[in-house]
Amino acid sequence: MEVGPATTVGTEVYVDPDLCSRSRHCHAKHRCVDLCSMGVFVSIKGDGVYPEKSQLCCMCFLCNDFCPAHAITVRWTLRA
């Protein structure tokens, strides 16, 4: 039997572009990109970050905890 990811439950990572790109508090220049061990985030020059591979998120919430602008939201999603 082959086991794969659930088709009805997933994760969604959302980055508020206004908060992220305008944040002057991110001293480490997009710390979330380096902090994420799953490689979810991609840095977009001048525009903050984008969660390119949010399906890989393991829900550790490190990005959410360390974002000084509180621009990152991680949540469960249910598909019907």
Rank of each mutant, 00 (worst) to 15 (best):
Q55Y: 08
H27N: 11
M38D: 13
G39N: 03
S54R: 12
L62K: 06
A69L: 03
T11I: 14
C67V: 06
P5N: 12
G48S: 00
V33T: 03
M38I: 06
M1D: 15
K45H: 14
P5Q: 11
T11R: 14
M59Q: 12
C26Y: 02
N64C: 05
A71Y: 02
D65L: 15
R79D: 09
V49R: 00
V13W: 01
D18M: 07
V13S: 03
L19I: 04
P5L: 14
Y50M: 13
S37K: 10
T73Q: 12
L78P: 03
S54T: 14
V13F: 01
F61Y: 13
F66E: 15
V13G: 01
R79C: 07
L35R: 08
F41D: 04
F61Q: 12
D34K: 14
L56S: 11
M59D: 09
C60N: 05
G10T: 08
G39H: 02
G48K: 03
M59H: 12
C20Q: 01
R75I: 09
V74K: 10
C26V: 10
A69V: 01
H27W: 15
A28R: 15
D65M: 15
C63V: 02
L19E: 04
H30M: 07
T8I: 15
A80V: 10
R79F: 11
F61A: 04
S23A: 10
Y50K: 11
S43L: 11
M59P: 00
G48Y: 00
H25D: 13
V42L: 11
Q55T: 15
P5A: 07
P51Q: 05
D47A: 11
V15C: 03
M59E: 12
C20P: 02
P5R: 15
F66V: 10
G48N: 01
C67G: 05
R22P: 02
W76V: 11
D18H: 09
G46K: 03
S54N: 12
F41P: 03
V9S: 07
